[in-house]
Amino acid sequence: MRGIREKILPPGGHSFRLLKWDRSLGEVETIISPQQSVRVAGAGNRWHFHTEMELTLFLRGQGTRFVGDHIGPFAPGDLVLLGERLPHYWHTNGVTSGLSIQFHFPMDHPFWGFPENLSTAELFQRSGHGMAISGKTAQVISQLMQELPKNTGAAQLGILLIILARLVAAPQPDLKLLSGGAFNLPNESPHQEIIAKAVRHLIANFREEVRLEDLLKLTRMSRPTFARQFKKHSGHSYSSFLNKLRLQAACRELEKSERGILDISLACGFPHVSFFNRLFRREMKCNPTEFRLRVRSSDKPAPSKKSTAPQAEPDPSIRSLFPPA
């Protein structure tokens, strides 16, 4: 999904920008030092893109993430690497908090003058699809990111380099590509804000009947132009995008509520439960009842028992950087 280009400037004396937020993605601060931070305009709560890569960690909150043509849920611990010019947006439900690193190393940047950094080139290329990071890799990187605000100067840069090295060395199952297509967007497009307006309308009203005629009136486009531009900017047809929004809402209802399948399908905007069931099986590879049983069984805590296994050692790269006082 295309959005509005965000222009990012690292603070003086820094080669990258470190952001934090404690309540909302619209209330973001740039961390200058452990004692100083400056409020900046946050763009994470609307469609946008930038020339910088970004690594975003949610410490608190949940909602729906949009990365390129990917639409999916996020929860605390969600960690995503975004490539250059990849449009993204986090639609949050309530209060959130987290950290984000934004950096830009074009091919003429001194970063590439060190031969040790050449191994990151493939990672940077793959990040054009967006990557959800999980497993041990996510645990280690989350720890490292939370150390960044406590450090300055070369120590901060060293942590970023360790993070990149961890991503390069990550096992394949820990890195999941999100967007089916990579995006290489121009700085400006006359249709970016218009399509973003249509997307905001869909997100706000997907539980109701959404008529194509209303979107054409909102965007002041003809039917062929709207269909072409929506597909070009989002990677989806209008109807596919709308169905994905409704499916994500239905999945949350199935996981959290006791409502019946018919009630959920209607509440999420599907006019016919038969269509909802067919679409759900096609996209989720199971029916709604099976999905509910699966997610609830996976949430049950394992029986408690005293473990004789030794406690996991802190990651050695973290231990060496931050020895105990």
Rank of each mutant, 00 (worst) to 15 (best):
A170D: 12
N187D: 13
E213Y: 11
K305D: 01
L82I: 01
A132K: 03
L55S: 01
L57R: 01
I162M: 02
T152V: 15
M53E: 06
M145Y: 12
E116D: 03
T120S: 08
I31R: 11
P324R: 09
L266R: 02
G128V: 04
K136V: 10
P87Q: 10
A43L: 02
G181F: 00
S265Y: 00
G153L: 12
M107S: 15
V210Y: 05
R259K: 08
A198N: 05
L86G: 01
L254Y: 05
D78Y: 06
S237A: 03
M107A: 15
L57D: 09
T64C: 07
P10K: 05
Q172G: 04
D78I: 00
G128I: 05
Y238E: 09
L177E: 10
F66C: 01
M53H: 02
Q192F: 14
I32T: 05
T30H: 14
P288C: 06
S234C: 15
I8D: 12
P106A: 06
P314C: 01
R200D: 10
F74A: 01
T92K: 07
K305I: 11
F58L: 04
G135P: 02
W21P: 09
S100M: 00
S127A: 11
E188W: 03
S97T: 07
G13A: 12
I133N: 13
G77K: 08
P310K: 04
L144N: 07
M284N: 03
A204G: 12
Q143M: 08
P106C: 10
R126I: 14
G83Q: 05
R126P: 05
V210I: 07
L279C: 01
E52K: 04
Q192R: 03
V67H: 11
P171F: 13
T56H: 10
L59Y: 07
L59E: 14
P186G: 12
S298I: 10
L262F: 04
S240K: 04
G3E: 02
E255V: 06
P190N: 11
E84R: 11
R252C: 02
P323H: 12
L175G: 07
